[in-house]
Every structure is written in C-alpha cells, then in structure tokens.
Write a protein that binds this DNA or RNA. Structure first.
Lengths: 377, 377
DNA sequence: GTGAAAGCGCTAACAC
DNA sequence: GTGTTAGCGCTTTCAC
C-alpha cells in the first residue's frame, strides 16, 4: 500500500514520464516498480496482494520502490483479472434521509475492510435496472441495492453474475439476500396509535407509483414495503368500518407530498390524521399542515423510518423506527459473507418500534387520552 | 447500446457459457458478438462507440447480435484503453443536505450525457486525499469534489492526472477549476441582519476543525468557506466593538452542534443570536434552543446554504442561499469542458442572498424593528 | 522463493 | 468500409 500522501510525478526512475494524449501524466505501473526494485512484475503483484511466497527482503525492496514511485494499482486493470475490491451501493434517491442513513452505515462497516464503496444514484426511478446493470458493468465485487423497482426475476438473473443483497424488499429468492423492516407490524402500530388517539378520518399518503414509475411500472408483488403498509392501512380501516382515503403524491420528494396534502386540506372536510408511507412524505405533509395554519390537533401526521429530523423538537414527528442504520450494516455484512462464498439465501427482518412524538395528538373534537408529549431524545 | 431490460445468460451462440471461479456466469464479450454477427471485434467496437466507418448493414447485424447476447461492454476493459465514461463525485459526508443538493444537480446534468456518476463518500475527514486518490485509481474520466480537506499543492498534482473541479474552495489554481459561493458577502448579510435586529451578543458556531481533522489537519489557507465566514464574523464584531464568542462543535453533524449549543445555553448568560457556519449546524442549534424551551426571541439562529429543510415552516431557518443546485450543475459543466480539452482554469463565484425567516427575531429585551415574518415559499 | 508467459476485454492504429 | 495487430496494467498458472 502506498503511503505517500501526495501523488507523485509518476516518473519512472529510468525514463521519461509516461504521458497521455491530453498531456496528462500517467502514474507508475507495476512494471516501473518491478524495474525500480529489480524484481519481476509478478513479485510486485504478490507484495501488493499480500500473497504467499515473498521473502522479507524482497517485500522491503518492493515497498520501497512503491513508495519512491508512489505507485498505485489501477483498479480497472485489477478488475480484469481478479477483483475490483469495490462494492456498489445503489440508492433510489440521493438526498433521501432514510437512504442516507443506510449508505452511511454501509460506508462505515466497509471502512474496516479493504473494500471501497461507490454509490450509484438512480437518475430515474423507471431505470432502476439500468443503474444496477451499470454497477455490474463496472465489475464491482458485490451490490447492495435499496428497494429498486425491478422484478424478482430480473434480480435473480443479475444475482447469477454478481453477489447481491436487497434492502427494503421482502422477496424470498434463492439467489440473493434481503434485509427489510417488519412493515406489517410497523404499520399496525401506527394505525393502532392513531385509532387509540381517537382518529376516525385517517388518510394514507402514498406515492402514485404508477405515475412515478411511468411506462415501465413493475407490477406490485404486494411484497414491497409500501404495498404492505398500505394494505395494513386498508385492513384496519376496513375492520373498523371506516372509509379509506388514499392521498397520492406525484413523487417521493417532500414538496410532492406537501402539494398533495395541501390540496386535500383546502378542498372541503379533511382527514384528522395522515399516515404517510415514509418520513420524507410525512415531513412534506407537516409542511402543508403548518402552511395551512393547522397543527397536530387539526391534522396529526405519522411517518415511517424515523429519519434523524423526525426527532427534531420543532418537527417532532411520530414515526416507526425500523433501524435503518442496522439494516445498512447488516446488508453489507451479508454481502461480504456472500462474496466469501455463502450461497444459501438469507432473509433478515428488522423489528420495528413506534416513536410517539408531538405530531400525533387526539383530534380537537375528541376527548381522547392525552399522550405524553415525550420526545425520545 | 444494449436494449434488453433483462440480463441474459450470456451464453454465446456457439459454445458453453463462460463461468467464473465461484460458478458465476460471465457475460458475452465483444468477441462473442463479433462471432455472432460474423464481423471483426473492431467492427463491433466501432458500432458501440458510434465511431466513423460502419455501414448501415453491418451496424444492423451487430446490433442484432448485441441484443441476442445481451452484450454489455465491461467498463474496466474500456477504461484500460480509452475512457471509462464515468465521472467521480466526492462528497465529504453522505447525508449532509447541502452536499446532497450538489450531488443531485450533478446527477441530473449528467443524465443528459453518456457519462455515469459514481459517488465516493469520504469515510474519514482526515482521509480526503485517500478518497480522491481512490477515485483516480478507479480511472474515472474526471472528478468533482466538494470541499476536500487537502492542500492546493496536492490538488495541483492530482489535476495533472485527471480533470478536476472543486466545489466550495476559493483556490486560484492554474490546473483545476473552482465553484464557490460568495462567502464574504453572504456572511456580511447575516451579520448585518442580526445587528439590525438589535443583537449584540452574537456567537459564531463552527466546527472545531483541528479536532475534526485530527492529526492530518490541513493548515487553514483562510480561503475556505468556513474560514471566510468566521473572519467576516470577527470583523463585524470588532468593528462594532463587540466581544466575539465562537462556539465549537465537535463535528459537522446536527447532534454535534446541538450538544455544543446546549452547553452554552445552560451555563450562565447566553448569546441572543447564533450565526452557524452551515445549515446542518444551524438546525442542530435550533434543536438545542427548542430543547431548552427557548425560542427565536431568546436565541435567534441563522445558517448558511439554505438547505431544503430550512424553508420548512416548522423550522423556518434564516439562511444564506448560495444556490447549491446551480453550483453542482456548473461544476459538472466545467468538468465536461475540461474533459473536452479546455486547459485554462476557471473560477466561478455564485452570488448569495439572505433568506430571512422566523428563526431570527429581535431579542426580547430590545425594541427593534420587527421583521416581516415572511416565509419565502 | 522467484520469474516468464499467457491472457482478461477492449480500443486505436493501420493495413487491406 | 472492414479486418488485423498490438497493446492497456494487472493477475495467475507453472516452470525454474
């Protein structure tokens, strides 16, 4: 491993510096190092890979040469024969706090290994397959993807080529692993909480997936987190004899949700509580509620994921904690296991717990049980 | 470009499927495609690169073969000869909203080109050089980095190897471009605003950079955004004959800032206003203020960057908008220009404007001019 | 323990 | 217009 903190000139000891078309200097190659150290290329390769069969003396010479030339192995060249020592992380939206938490966890776990992470954002939700595919083209040694909008068959095929772990999918595949929250029980907790507070006109805020996904909309298997949360909502409403009301946002962004909620708040009687499909939508809902001059007693809002801002005292959003950080860490751990040879598929489900905060209150009209306005941090 | 949405088996038409050590199937190669189409490898290469000199007939045959085999060029192999068609984006912290905005912008601009983006998070602020270096090792065709903690010399040397654009640095290098906000005027606007409201005990909330950076602390050139903001703060306080008070957070995270601010709020007389070095710190400060049961008339808070949550009515943070999205887009544009051959360095400075919101109020003790509590969205 | 040789999959000259 | 050739920098047998 090179140690010099400054990239060197890459000038090999015995010749002119290699240059690229645009006059760019190229770094030293394994050949240069071998020459400098007076050994063969293979010997250098062994040293940098920590492989078996190098004498201490040779190792020292090679390491000195590496330091002198500030040699750095080209990942592309290594990837052609062996591994790239790179793991790909695919997240649907950069800037989504829940995804960020997962990414942070992954990055941190990987910091203890010799793997690098590259994050590939999906530029277009319809193109989840493209993004995953391009990660595979990049010859990463494994992929963690967060809830991509692709079919299980497609993933199965991809998994034949590269070790794969999915976060936020409940698929039971034999070829890749999954890590997901217990969406069923999480959603139940939300509904029970709202009902207990006395709410009856409860809306579910979801993304209009058909429009968000566009033409290549993947048929809902019913096993994705949002379908489950929505189904549980419907079941509870049905069981109580209440009329369901689904509010559909045009996208996953806060402003999309705010716009959708604004609309229902200004047109006639509105729900007294909103169960949002995830926290970013919930925060957008809060935006609309506050902008309309209303508060939690007019319209309570609950979310899912317990993103960091949810616990902010000024936001204080009731949400379902599904341990995003642990999910990300676990996903990476599973991936490393897979790279290491495991072939049986594993499904992990994280327990959920409801964090009750100030965004959910008994509706103004009802004499319900006052919750303690406790903030859990 | 292959069009089949599903990765195929990669079985070449005339032989057994290539397999990897771990029994992983490998995809078709350019050789397989050439065989299938009955042409040479070079011909296939020309077709996929859209290069000059291919007859329509041959192009059709090749494209059919590509589709049949679901051929996908290996990025690693391409990178060894030509370009990787990948741009690297280096952001200091995944999950920081300002960085996310920049990353989104970059991703969006690149979506219109044939370039892919990979994001490399810095796992350790002390290791900005490592992260950049590893992006270079990955043979990306260019790099956009957000305010890495490295010296200009180091960047100059790196820039000899790969096209480079820095965001949030005011360096004037001859070898790489910079895009930065007008930190000087932005900070002035904040200070003038706070003073005009009647504040006199104004604190500056900054990250304790020496501790955050650790041993490899890069000497402050004074040209980085935070040094400038802090200097302007000191200048204003000095000009008014006021005693400066710098509150130092242990890190860039919201909770670090909240902890630091909590401390000064509970120990004796506290400032009536806090100018935070960036919005994440400001949101953390608001957390501490709210947790202490105080509001904007007790302690006003202003930030820098105008991250999306700042405009949330429940947060309503006064902040300096430096057009993060435009910065990200501009950085990518400059990088593409550089890849295209430009060699003169360019420095872009974005204008700033203060978004006054509810988090800054006249101090309770003062009869100042009430600002309009306008929220700008 | 060490080195020579054979590729990995692709592109860029240069022949034809 | 099309095919042939020579590598890019690395890893990996397999002799020595």
């Amino acid at each position: 491993m090179a140690t010099s903190p400054v990239p060197d000139t890459g000038r090999s000891s015995d010749g002119e510096p290699a240059r690229h078309a645009a006059g760019r200097r190229r770094g030293a190659t394994i050949q240069d190092v071998a020459r400098e150290a007076g050994v063969s290329r293979a010997a250098v390769s062994k040293v940098i890979r920590n492989a078996y069969g190098v004498s201490d003396q040779m190792r020292a010479r090679v390491e000195a040469a590496i330091a002198t030339l500030d040699y750095r192995p080209r990942v592309a060249a290594r990837a052609m024969r062996g591994a790239s020592f790179t793991l790909g992380l695919e997240i649907p939206q950069i800037g989504n706090d829940f995804h960020s938490v997962i990414a942070s966890a992954a990055t941190e776990v990987l910091a203890e290994t010799s793997y690098q992470v590259v994050i590939a954002p999906i530029r277009d939700p319809q193109q989840g397959d493209k993004a995953l595919q391009s990660l595979a083209d990049r010859q990463v040694d494994g992929i963690v993807a967060v809830a991509p909008l692709v079919s299980t068959d497609w993933l199965d095929t991809l998994a034949e080529r590269v070790p794969l772990v999915m976060v936020g999918r409940h698929d039971v595949s034999t070829r890749y692993d999954t890590v997901a929250g217990d969406d069923e029980s999480g959603a139940e907790q939300v509904m029970e909480h709202l009902v207990e507070l006395g709410h009856r006109r409860i809306a579910f805020l979801d993304v209009d997936r058909r429009r968000a996904a566009g033409k290549s909309y993947i048929s809902p298997t019913g096993r994705d987190p949002h379908s489950i949360r929505r189904r549980v909502y419907h079941e509870h409403m049905g069981a109580l004899g209440l009329a369901p009301l689904v509010v559909e946002s045009l996208g996953h962004m806060e402003e999309d949700a705010a716009a959708a909620v604004s609309e229902i708040l200004t047109s006639g009687p509105h729900p007294t509580a909103i169960f949002a499909g995830h926290d970013t939508l919930a925060v957008g809902a809060l935006r609309a509620v506050a902008a309309a001059g209303l508060d939690a007693e007019d319209v309570s809002v609950a979310g899912f994921d317990d993103i960091p801002i949810a616990s902010h005292p000024l936001i204080s959003l009731t949400s379902v904690d599904q341990q995003g950080y642990a999910m990300g860490a676990e996903a990476v751990r599973l991936l490393l296991e897979r790279i290491d040879g495991r072939t049986e598929a594993v499904q992990v489900q994280m327990p959920t717990s409801l964090r009750v905060r100030a965004s959910t209150r008994p509706p103004r009209s009802v004499e319900g049980v006052r919750p303690e306005p406790g903030d859990d941090r």
